[in-house]
Design a protein around this nucleic acid. Structure first.
Length: 408
RNA sequence: CGGGCCGGAGUAUGCCGGUAGUACGCCUGAUUUGGGAUCAGGUAGACCGAGUUCGAUUCUCGGCGGCCCGACCA
Protein backbone atom coordinates (compact mmCIF):
# COMPACT_ATOMS: atom_id res chain seq x y z
CA UNK A 1 0.00 0.00 0.00
CA UNK A 2 1.20 3.46 -0.81
CA UNK A 3 0.92 6.18 1.78
CA UNK A 4 0.09 8.72 -0.92
CA UNK A 5 -3.08 6.73 -1.64
CA UNK A 6 -4.04 5.87 1.92
CA UNK A 7 -7.55 7.01 2.88
CA UNK A 8 -6.41 8.44 6.21
CA UNK A 9 -3.88 11.00 7.38
CA UNK A 10 -1.95 11.20 10.57
CA UNK A 11 -2.49 13.94 13.13
CA UNK A 12 0.30 15.87 14.73
CA UNK A 13 -1.59 16.67 17.91
CA UNK A 14 -3.58 14.51 20.26
CA UNK A 15 -7.35 14.86 19.98
CA UNK A 16 -8.55 17.06 22.83
CA UNK A 17 -11.48 14.80 23.68
CA UNK A 18 -9.49 11.65 24.38
CA UNK A 19 -7.28 10.95 27.34
CA UNK A 20 -6.82 7.22 26.85
CA UNK A 21 -3.51 6.46 25.16
CA UNK A 22 -5.05 3.80 22.94
CA UNK A 23 -7.58 6.27 21.55
CA UNK A 24 -5.04 9.06 21.14
CA UNK A 25 -2.51 6.98 19.23
CA UNK A 26 -5.05 5.05 17.17
CA UNK A 27 -6.81 8.25 16.10
CA UNK A 28 -3.57 10.11 15.42
CA UNK A 29 -2.24 7.24 13.36
CA UNK A 30 -5.45 6.97 11.34
CA UNK A 31 -6.38 3.50 12.60
CA UNK A 32 -9.79 4.53 13.88
CA UNK A 33 -12.14 7.46 13.59
CA UNK A 34 -14.45 8.44 16.37
CA UNK A 35 -18.17 8.77 15.69
CA UNK A 36 -19.57 9.24 19.19
CA UNK A 37 -18.78 8.17 22.72
CA UNK A 38 -17.91 4.50 22.63
CA UNK A 39 -18.31 4.17 18.88
CA UNK A 40 -15.32 4.06 16.56
CA UNK A 41 -14.99 3.36 12.87
CA UNK A 42 -12.12 1.22 11.72
CA UNK A 43 -10.09 2.84 8.98
CA UNK A 44 -7.95 0.77 6.59
CA UNK A 45 -4.91 0.54 8.90
CA UNK A 46 -7.03 -0.32 11.93
CA UNK A 47 -9.10 -2.79 9.98
CA UNK A 48 -5.96 -4.63 8.90
CA UNK A 49 -4.85 -4.95 12.52
CA UNK A 50 -8.28 -6.10 13.58
CA UNK A 51 -8.43 -8.70 10.80
CA UNK A 52 -5.06 -10.04 11.87
CA UNK A 53 -6.27 -10.39 15.43
CA UNK A 54 -9.42 -12.11 14.15
CA UNK A 55 -7.40 -14.48 12.01
CA UNK A 56 -5.19 -15.47 14.93
CA UNK A 57 -8.36 -16.23 16.87
CA UNK A 58 -9.75 -18.25 13.95
CA UNK A 59 -6.60 -20.28 13.54
CA UNK A 60 -6.40 -21.21 17.20
CA UNK A 61 -10.09 -21.99 17.60
CA UNK A 62 -10.24 -24.02 14.40
CA UNK A 63 -7.39 -26.11 15.82
CA UNK A 64 -9.56 -27.15 18.75
CA UNK A 65 -12.44 -28.19 16.54
CA UNK A 66 -14.64 -25.11 16.73
CA UNK A 67 -16.45 -24.05 13.56
CA UNK A 68 -17.11 -20.47 12.61
CA UNK A 69 -20.69 -19.42 11.90
CA UNK A 70 -22.63 -16.19 11.84
CA UNK A 71 -25.79 -15.54 13.81
CA UNK A 72 -28.23 -12.68 13.50
CA UNK A 73 -27.65 -9.44 15.35
CA UNK A 74 -31.45 -9.25 15.74
CA UNK A 75 -32.77 -11.23 18.63
CA UNK A 76 -36.40 -11.78 19.47
CA UNK A 77 -38.12 -11.19 22.71
CA UNK A 78 -39.68 -14.64 23.01
CA UNK A 79 -36.36 -16.46 23.10
CA UNK A 80 -35.04 -14.17 25.80
CA UNK A 81 -38.23 -14.47 27.80
CA UNK A 82 -37.78 -18.23 27.89
CA UNK A 83 -34.70 -17.77 30.06
CA UNK A 84 -36.25 -14.87 31.95
CA UNK A 85 -33.57 -12.47 30.78
CA UNK A 86 -35.53 -10.11 28.52
CA UNK A 87 -36.40 -7.71 31.31
CA UNK A 88 -33.15 -7.96 33.21
CA UNK A 89 -31.26 -7.33 29.97
CA UNK A 90 -33.03 -4.00 29.46
CA UNK A 91 -30.26 -2.05 31.12
CA UNK A 92 -27.66 -3.08 28.60
CA UNK A 93 -29.60 -4.35 25.61
CA UNK A 94 -30.83 -2.01 22.90
CA UNK A 95 -34.48 -3.07 22.66
CA UNK A 96 -37.05 -1.64 20.28
CA UNK A 97 -40.26 -2.29 18.39
CA UNK A 98 -40.76 -2.30 14.65
CA UNK A 99 -43.77 -0.68 13.01
CA UNK A 100 -45.93 -3.74 13.62
CA UNK A 101 -45.16 -3.68 17.31
CA UNK A 102 -42.92 -6.74 17.31
CA UNK A 103 -40.11 -6.42 19.83
CA UNK A 104 -36.45 -6.99 19.11
CA UNK A 105 -33.13 -6.59 20.78
CA UNK A 106 -29.65 -6.10 19.34
CA UNK A 107 -27.37 -8.85 20.48
CA UNK A 108 -24.76 -8.29 23.16
CA UNK A 109 -24.35 -12.04 23.64
CA UNK A 110 -25.90 -15.06 21.92
CA UNK A 111 -26.62 -17.84 24.42
CA UNK A 112 -30.37 -17.66 23.88
CA UNK A 113 -30.60 -17.56 20.08
CA UNK A 114 -27.82 -20.08 19.56
CA UNK A 115 -29.31 -22.51 22.05
CA UNK A 116 -32.64 -22.17 20.24
CA UNK A 117 -30.99 -22.78 16.87
CA UNK A 118 -29.00 -25.74 18.18
CA UNK A 119 -32.29 -27.61 18.76
CA UNK A 120 -32.43 -28.18 15.01
CA UNK A 121 -29.12 -29.97 14.99
CA UNK A 122 -28.49 -31.54 18.39
CA UNK A 123 -30.81 -34.46 19.16
CA UNK A 124 -28.65 -37.40 20.15
CA UNK A 125 -25.56 -38.10 22.24
CA UNK A 126 -24.03 -38.94 18.87
CA UNK A 127 -24.32 -35.29 17.92
CA UNK A 128 -22.14 -34.19 20.83
CA UNK A 129 -19.79 -32.54 21.60
CA UNK A 130 -20.00 -29.51 19.33
CA UNK A 131 -18.40 -26.09 19.39
CA UNK A 132 -19.16 -23.05 17.25
CA UNK A 133 -18.09 -19.44 17.33
CA UNK A 134 -18.64 -16.17 15.55
CA UNK A 135 -16.87 -12.84 15.27
CA UNK A 136 -19.56 -10.22 15.22
CA UNK A 137 -20.44 -6.68 16.16
CA UNK A 138 -22.22 -6.51 19.48
CA UNK A 139 -24.24 -3.63 20.86
CA UNK A 140 -24.35 -2.73 24.47
CA UNK A 141 -25.98 0.28 26.06
CA UNK A 142 -23.03 1.22 28.23
CA UNK A 143 -23.89 3.57 31.06
CA UNK A 144 -20.50 5.07 30.58
CA UNK A 145 -18.44 4.32 27.49
CA UNK A 146 -14.82 5.09 28.19
CA UNK A 147 -11.14 4.44 27.71
CA UNK A 148 -11.17 4.58 23.91
CA UNK A 149 -11.59 1.14 22.40
CA UNK A 150 -11.70 -0.55 25.77
CA UNK A 151 -15.35 0.04 26.60
CA UNK A 152 -17.67 0.89 23.74
CA UNK A 153 -21.35 0.71 22.90
CA UNK A 154 -20.61 -1.03 19.64
CA UNK A 155 -17.75 -3.48 19.61
CA UNK A 156 -16.56 -6.62 17.94
CA UNK A 157 -16.76 -9.81 19.92
CA UNK A 158 -15.66 -13.34 19.30
CA UNK A 159 -18.12 -15.57 21.09
CA UNK A 160 -17.60 -19.31 21.23
CA UNK A 161 -20.14 -21.81 22.60
CA UNK A 162 -19.60 -25.47 23.35
CA UNK A 163 -22.14 -28.25 23.88
CA UNK A 164 -21.52 -31.44 25.85
CA UNK A 165 -23.14 -34.52 27.30
CA UNK A 166 -21.21 -34.54 30.56
CA UNK A 167 -19.60 -32.10 32.92
CA UNK A 168 -16.29 -34.00 32.53
CA UNK A 169 -16.36 -33.53 28.79
CA UNK A 170 -17.11 -29.86 29.21
CA UNK A 171 -14.32 -29.45 31.77
CA UNK A 172 -11.87 -30.98 29.35
CA UNK A 173 -12.90 -28.75 26.49
CA UNK A 174 -12.89 -25.72 28.76
CA UNK A 175 -9.22 -26.32 29.50
CA UNK A 176 -8.50 -26.69 25.80
CA UNK A 177 -10.07 -23.30 25.18
CA UNK A 178 -8.09 -21.79 28.04
CA UNK A 179 -4.90 -23.07 26.45
CA UNK A 180 -5.97 -21.74 23.05
CA UNK A 181 -6.62 -18.36 24.66
CA UNK A 182 -3.10 -18.30 26.08
CA UNK A 183 -1.76 -18.88 22.59
CA UNK A 184 -4.05 -16.29 21.03
CA UNK A 185 -3.08 -13.55 23.43
CA UNK A 186 0.62 -14.25 23.30
CA UNK A 187 0.48 -14.22 19.50
CA UNK A 188 -1.08 -10.76 19.57
CA UNK A 189 1.77 -9.57 21.77
CA UNK A 190 -0.15 -9.49 25.04
CA UNK A 191 0.81 -11.00 28.34
CA UNK A 192 -2.58 -12.17 29.56
CA UNK A 193 -2.85 -13.83 32.92
CA UNK A 194 -5.60 -16.33 33.61
CA UNK A 195 -7.61 -15.03 36.54
CA UNK A 196 -10.13 -16.61 38.86
CA UNK A 197 -13.26 -14.51 38.75
CA UNK A 198 -16.82 -14.75 39.87
CA UNK A 199 -19.74 -15.09 37.52
CA UNK A 200 -19.63 -18.73 36.55
CA UNK A 201 -23.24 -19.83 36.53
CA UNK A 202 -22.46 -23.47 37.17
CA UNK A 203 -19.09 -23.50 38.82
CA UNK A 204 -17.32 -21.62 41.56
CA UNK A 205 -15.34 -19.49 39.12
CA UNK A 206 -15.30 -18.17 35.68
CA UNK A 207 -11.91 -17.46 34.20
CA UNK A 208 -10.86 -14.09 32.90
CA UNK A 209 -7.80 -13.27 30.86
CA UNK A 210 -6.34 -10.07 32.21
CA UNK A 211 -3.64 -7.78 30.86
CA UNK A 212 -1.87 -5.65 33.45
CA UNK A 213 -2.30 -1.97 32.62
CA UNK A 214 -2.89 1.24 34.54
CA UNK A 215 -6.02 1.94 32.52
CA UNK A 216 -7.60 -1.40 33.44
CA UNK A 217 -10.91 -1.35 35.30
CA UNK A 218 -10.25 -4.53 37.25
CA UNK A 219 -7.96 -5.14 40.17
CA UNK A 220 -6.27 -8.50 40.27
CA UNK A 221 -3.86 -10.25 42.65
CA UNK A 222 -1.19 -12.01 40.65
CA UNK A 223 0.64 -15.12 41.72
CA UNK A 224 3.72 -14.61 39.59
CA UNK A 225 5.14 -18.03 40.31
CA UNK A 226 2.06 -19.74 38.86
CA UNK A 227 1.24 -17.02 36.33
CA UNK A 228 -2.34 -17.02 37.58
CA UNK A 229 -4.35 -14.39 39.39
CA UNK A 230 -7.47 -13.81 41.43
CA UNK A 231 -9.87 -10.99 40.68
CA UNK A 232 -10.53 -8.69 43.60
CA UNK A 233 -14.27 -9.03 42.90
CA UNK A 234 -14.32 -12.57 44.32
CA UNK A 235 -14.16 -13.17 48.04
CA UNK A 236 -10.40 -13.02 47.98
CA UNK A 237 -9.50 -14.29 51.43
CA UNK A 238 -11.72 -17.33 51.19
CA UNK A 239 -10.57 -18.15 47.67
CA UNK A 240 -6.88 -17.73 48.43
CA UNK A 241 -7.23 -20.01 51.37
CA UNK A 242 -8.86 -22.60 49.17
CA UNK A 243 -6.15 -22.29 46.53
CA UNK A 244 -3.43 -22.40 49.16
CA UNK A 245 -1.89 -19.15 47.91
CA UNK A 246 0.08 -16.96 50.27
CA UNK A 247 -1.54 -13.55 50.13
CA UNK A 248 1.67 -11.74 51.04
CA UNK A 249 3.32 -13.03 47.87
CA UNK A 250 0.61 -11.79 45.55
CA UNK A 251 1.03 -8.60 43.57
CA UNK A 252 -1.94 -6.26 43.25
CA UNK A 253 -2.34 -4.73 39.78
CA UNK A 254 -4.95 -2.97 37.68
CA UNK A 255 -5.80 -4.97 34.57
CA UNK A 256 -7.81 -5.02 31.35
CA UNK A 257 -10.09 -8.01 30.81
CA UNK A 258 -9.50 -9.15 27.24
CA UNK A 259 -11.30 -12.47 27.43
CA UNK A 260 -13.40 -14.66 29.65
CA UNK A 261 -14.73 -18.18 29.76
CA UNK A 262 -17.82 -19.46 31.58
CA UNK A 263 -19.28 -22.78 32.41
CA UNK A 264 -23.00 -22.43 31.83
CA UNK A 265 -24.23 -25.89 32.73
CA UNK A 266 -27.88 -26.24 31.77
CA UNK A 267 -28.85 -22.62 32.49
CA UNK A 268 -29.86 -22.09 28.87
CA UNK A 269 -30.50 -25.61 27.60
CA UNK A 270 -33.20 -26.34 30.17
CA UNK A 271 -35.48 -23.34 29.62
CA UNK A 272 -34.93 -23.44 25.85
CA UNK A 273 -35.35 -27.21 25.78
CA UNK A 274 -32.10 -28.09 24.11
CA UNK A 275 -31.84 -31.76 24.99
CA UNK A 276 -30.40 -34.96 23.57
CA UNK A 277 -31.30 -38.61 23.86
CA UNK A 278 -28.66 -40.68 25.60
CA UNK A 279 -27.61 -44.31 25.02
CA UNK A 280 -30.45 -45.66 27.10
CA UNK A 281 -33.11 -43.54 25.45
CA UNK A 282 -33.45 -40.92 28.17
CA UNK A 283 -33.77 -37.25 27.32
CA UNK A 284 -31.18 -35.00 28.99
CA UNK A 285 -30.36 -31.30 28.83
CA UNK A 286 -27.20 -30.35 26.96
CA UNK A 287 -24.36 -28.97 29.09
CA UNK A 288 -22.91 -25.74 27.79
CA UNK A 289 -20.12 -23.23 28.14
CA UNK A 290 -19.42 -19.89 26.50
CA UNK A 291 -16.18 -18.09 25.82
CA UNK A 292 -15.56 -14.48 24.77
CA UNK A 293 -12.77 -12.32 23.41
CA UNK A 294 -13.07 -8.68 22.35
CA UNK A 295 -10.79 -8.18 19.34
CA UNK A 296 -11.15 -4.39 19.44
CA UNK A 297 -10.37 -4.43 23.11
CA UNK A 298 -7.34 -6.59 22.37
CA UNK A 299 -6.21 -3.97 19.87
CA UNK A 300 -6.67 -1.19 22.41
CA UNK A 301 -4.90 -3.19 25.10
CA UNK A 302 -1.92 -3.84 22.82
CA UNK A 303 -1.56 -0.11 22.25
CA UNK A 304 -1.82 0.58 25.97
CA UNK A 305 0.98 -1.82 26.84
CA UNK A 306 3.12 -1.41 23.74
CA UNK A 307 3.93 2.17 22.77
CA UNK A 308 6.48 4.88 23.44
CA UNK A 309 6.37 8.67 23.26
CA UNK A 310 6.55 8.50 19.46
CA UNK A 311 3.77 6.05 18.77
CA UNK A 312 2.58 2.47 18.66
CA UNK A 313 4.84 -0.57 18.68
CA UNK A 314 2.99 -3.47 17.02
CA UNK A 315 4.10 -7.06 17.23
CA UNK A 316 4.87 -8.60 13.87
CA UNK A 317 1.79 -10.81 14.01
CA UNK A 318 -0.75 -8.00 14.16
CA UNK A 319 1.07 -5.01 12.66
CA UNK A 320 -0.87 -3.50 9.75
CA UNK A 321 2.26 -4.05 7.64
CA UNK A 322 5.50 -5.80 8.40
CA UNK A 323 7.56 -3.10 6.71
CA UNK A 324 7.31 0.68 6.50
CA UNK A 325 9.37 1.75 3.51
CA UNK A 326 10.41 5.40 3.24
CA UNK A 327 11.71 7.10 0.15
CA UNK A 328 13.71 10.26 0.63
CA UNK A 329 13.79 11.76 -2.82
CA UNK A 330 14.53 8.38 -4.40
CA UNK A 331 11.16 7.17 -5.58
CA UNK A 332 12.33 5.19 -8.57
CA UNK A 333 14.71 3.12 -6.45
CA UNK A 334 12.23 2.82 -3.58
CA UNK A 335 9.50 1.71 -5.99
CA UNK A 336 11.78 -1.09 -7.12
CA UNK A 337 12.31 -2.21 -3.51
CA UNK A 338 8.55 -1.94 -2.91
CA UNK A 339 7.75 -4.17 -5.88
CA UNK A 340 10.34 -6.77 -4.91
CA UNK A 341 9.17 -6.94 -1.31
CA UNK A 342 5.57 -7.36 -2.39
CA UNK A 343 6.52 -9.99 -4.95
CA UNK A 344 8.10 -12.04 -2.17
CA UNK A 345 4.99 -11.81 -0.05
CA UNK A 346 6.15 -9.19 2.44
CA UNK A 347 3.51 -6.69 3.47
CA UNK A 348 4.81 -3.19 3.01
CA UNK A 349 3.50 0.28 3.55
CA UNK A 350 5.41 2.54 1.18
CA UNK A 351 5.79 6.23 1.96
CA UNK A 352 6.09 7.56 -1.58
CA UNK A 353 4.89 11.07 -0.74
CA UNK A 354 6.97 13.63 -2.54
CA UNK A 355 5.77 16.70 -0.67
CA UNK A 356 6.68 15.57 2.82
CA UNK A 357 9.91 16.30 4.65
CA UNK A 358 12.06 13.50 6.03
CA UNK A 359 11.18 14.35 9.62
CA UNK A 360 7.49 13.97 9.01
CA UNK A 361 7.98 10.64 7.30
CA UNK A 362 10.01 9.32 10.20
CA UNK A 363 7.49 10.63 12.70
CA UNK A 364 4.66 8.92 10.82
CA UNK A 365 6.58 5.65 10.69
CA UNK A 366 7.11 5.78 14.45
CA UNK A 367 3.47 6.67 15.05
CA UNK A 368 2.02 3.92 12.84
CA UNK A 369 4.43 1.49 14.42
CA UNK A 370 5.23 -1.19 11.83
CA UNK A 371 8.01 -3.49 13.06
CA UNK A 372 10.58 -2.73 10.36
CA UNK A 373 11.51 0.61 8.83
CA UNK A 374 13.38 0.73 5.55
CA UNK A 375 14.82 3.93 4.11
CA UNK A 376 16.04 4.50 0.58
CA UNK A 377 17.81 7.84 0.17
CA UNK A 378 20.46 9.71 -1.72
CA UNK A 379 22.75 9.54 1.28
CA UNK A 380 23.46 5.90 0.64
CA UNK A 381 25.27 4.11 -2.16
CA UNK A 382 23.01 2.86 -4.94
CA UNK A 383 23.01 -0.73 -3.77
CA UNK A 384 22.34 0.08 -0.13
CA UNK A 385 19.31 0.40 2.07
CA UNK A 386 18.79 1.28 5.70
CA UNK A 387 16.88 -1.01 8.05
CA UNK A 388 15.69 -0.34 11.58
CA UNK A 389 13.52 -2.28 13.99
CA UNK A 390 10.84 -0.35 15.85
CA UNK A 391 11.59 0.93 18.50
CA UNK A 392 15.39 0.50 18.30
CA UNK A 393 17.16 3.86 18.00
CA UNK A 394 19.96 2.85 15.66
CA UNK A 395 19.52 1.90 12.02
CA UNK A 396 21.76 -0.38 10.05
CA UNK A 397 22.82 -0.03 6.44
CA UNK A 398 22.82 -3.21 4.38
CA UNK A 399 22.99 -4.27 0.76
CA UNK A 400 19.69 -3.90 -1.01
CA UNK A 401 19.95 -7.39 -2.45
CA UNK A 402 20.02 -8.86 1.05
CA UNK A 403 16.94 -7.14 2.35
CA UNK A 404 14.40 -9.81 1.46
CA UNK A 405 16.38 -12.54 3.17
CA UNK A 406 16.83 -10.36 6.22
CA UNK A 407 13.10 -9.81 6.51
CA UNK A 408 12.01 -13.40 5.93
C1' C B 1 -27.57 7.01 36.12
C1' G B 2 -25.25 10.82 40.12
C1' G B 3 -21.01 14.46 40.42
C1' G B 4 -17.06 17.55 38.07
C1' C B 5 -14.74 19.87 33.83
C1' C B 6 -15.38 21.24 28.80
C1' G B 7 -17.88 22.79 23.76
C1' G B 8 -14.73 28.20 18.38
C1' A B 9 -12.04 26.57 10.95
C1' G B 10 -10.36 19.58 9.28
C1' U B 11 -6.87 19.41 13.98
C1' A B 12 -4.78 21.99 18.22
C1' U B 13 -5.02 26.45 20.82
C1' G B 14 -4.50 32.37 22.79
C1' C B 15 -7.35 36.61 24.00
C1' C B 16 -11.98 38.98 24.64
C1' G B 17 -19.18 42.05 26.57
C1' G B 18 -17.78 45.74 20.76
C1' U B 19 -14.29 43.92 13.16
C1' A B 20 -13.02 36.04 15.92
C1' G B 21 -6.52 35.80 16.23
C1' U B 22 -2.46 32.11 15.85
C1' A B 23 -0.14 27.29 14.43
C1' C B 24 -0.71 22.93 11.68
C1' G B 25 -3.77 21.08 7.64
C1' C B 26 -5.78 22.22 2.76
C1' C B 27 -5.26 25.19 -2.32
C1' U B 28 -1.76 28.10 -5.98
C1' G B 29 3.40 29.22 -7.28
C1' A B 30 8.65 28.95 -6.51
C1' U B 31 12.57 26.72 -3.88
C1' U B 32 13.26 22.14 -1.00
C1' U B 33 14.14 15.96 1.42
C1' G B 34 17.97 12.37 7.31
C1' G B 35 13.66 13.87 12.59
C1' G B 36 7.20 17.39 12.05
C1' A B 37 10.68 22.25 5.08
C1' U B 38 11.18 27.88 3.44
C1' C B 39 8.94 32.19 1.08
C1' A B 40 4.57 34.61 -1.14
C1' G B 41 -0.61 34.52 -1.86
C1' G B 42 -5.25 32.02 -0.67
C1' U B 43 -9.18 28.74 1.96
C1' A B 44 -11.94 27.65 6.19
C1' G B 45 -14.70 28.57 12.40
C1' A B 46 -18.26 30.44 17.68
C1' C B 47 -23.22 23.15 19.39
C1' C B 48 -28.71 24.53 19.89
C1' G B 49 -32.49 27.52 22.37
C1' A B 50 -34.04 31.18 25.85
C1' G B 51 -32.60 35.27 29.06
C1' U B 52 -29.56 39.75 30.60
C1' U B 53 -27.51 43.86 27.52
C1' C B 54 -27.39 49.35 23.05
C1' G B 55 -24.55 45.03 21.64
C1' A B 56 -23.37 37.94 23.58
C1' U B 57 -18.61 33.61 20.76
C1' U B 58 -17.79 35.68 25.77
C1' C B 59 -22.38 36.40 31.30
C1' U B 60 -26.99 33.35 33.22
C1' C B 61 -30.42 29.21 32.59
C1' G B 62 -32.01 24.91 29.86
C1' G B 63 -31.02 21.27 26.18
C1' C B 64 -27.57 18.47 23.30
C1' G B 65 -22.61 16.59 22.85
C1' G B 66 -17.49 15.10 24.73
C1' C B 67 -14.05 13.62 28.61
C1' C B 68 -13.03 12.35 33.74
C1' C B 69 -14.62 10.33 38.84
C1' G B 70 -18.38 7.11 40.97
C1' A B 71 -22.21 3.24 40.37
C1' C B 72 -22.66 -0.59 36.63
C1' C B 73 -20.12 -3.64 33.29
C1' A B 74 -17.95 -7.89 27.36
Amino acid sequence: MKLSKLFTKTLKTNPADETAINAQLLIRGGFVSKVMAGVYEYMPLGWRVLQKINNIIREELNKIGADELYLSVFQDRETWQATGRWDSAKEVMYQFKDTTGKEYGLGFTHEEPLTATARHYINSYKDLPKAVYQIQTKFRNEARAKSGLLRGREFLMKDLYSFHTTQEDLDQYYEKVATAYDTIFSRTGLKAVRTFASGGLFSRFSDEFQVVSEIGEDTIYINEEKNRAVNKEVNTDEVLNELGWDKTKLVEKPAIEVGNIFKLGTRFSEPLKLSYTDESGDSKPVIMASYGIGPGRVMGAVVEVSHDDKGIIWSEQIAPFKVHLISLGKNAEAEDVYQKLQASGIEVLYDDREDKAAGEKFADADLIGCPWRLVVSGKMADDQIEIKKRPDPTPQVVKRSEIINLLK
